[in-house]
Amino acid sequence: QTVTLRSAHTNAVGEVQDEGLRFLDRRLRELTGNRLGLQIYPNGQLGNELPMIEGVALGTIDLAVPSHAAFANFVRDYQLLDMPFLIRDYGHLMRVAGTPAIAQLAQAAQGRGFRVLGLYSSGVRHLMTRDPVQGMAELRGRKIRTQQNPVHVAAFNAFGANATPLAYGELYGALQVGVVDGAEAAYTNFVAQKFYEVCKHWTTVGWLSLTAPVVLSERKFQSLAPDLRAALVQAGEESAAFERQFVVESEAKLVEQVRAQGVTILDPDKAPFQRAAQPLYDRFLQTEADRARLRLIQETA
């Protein structure tokens, strides 16, 4: 008698979150003698990020992997992870993942009926553009597509660009014909959606380390036998560690693919970006708890 969890993510098959969930599925079946597993629905088949999280809250989906940016619409505390340049690189993320700051965020989510099983990485975000952008000064006045998120919009406006939220499905066409001049993205988006066909320039700003909490419905979690719950907690952490490592390894291959497509990769001076982003910390992190967690993450070596 296998319990299968209806699990949704928005990556394509074989992309990082898909691999992470497959690992989770394998590990769960090993740990429980095939009594617990996942049924994985990729590609946003069960809905985009917000509906996916809503589905977990309503019990129509058991498990989802939304970005922390989308999840912050439900659990405000996760906005902390949206702060530009907060997480410095992949190594830093791996060390931060184990800190009490992240555990506190999971605690806050639990109060809203979400059990967070781990924190996946969705890659570090850079900038793809139609024309070269060597540094922050050259961003001035350019229309850059961001996600529909107040921090992301504020960040790119702070960098001097004209932040333009646009549906992801319209992005390729908008870049192709020049409705927008560029967009922020991770290597995996750049390659998987073939954006390199319409954006020949890639500026490694690394302005945000996008993460994705693995979110299970708390009600579903509580309905499981204690040993299954323990297996979920263990396998969740293991799959997150695996997934974050997988992101690092697959990115090396992606960089090669980007080069092979004849894309120029520019490495800008990050200091002006970091300075421009500083005021956002005060603007968006206003509670004492937010600030305490901010310090915890910043002080993590």
Binding site: N48, P51, T60, E170
Partner: peptide, 19 residues
């Protein structure tokens, strides 16, 4: 065994599109 609330939710999501 999916709760029926998915009907209202999907109806909303199907319309929630700028294009």
């Amino acid at each position: 065994d999916v709760p029926l609330v998915v009907v209202a939710q999907r109806l909303w999501n199907g319309l929630d599109s700028f294009p």
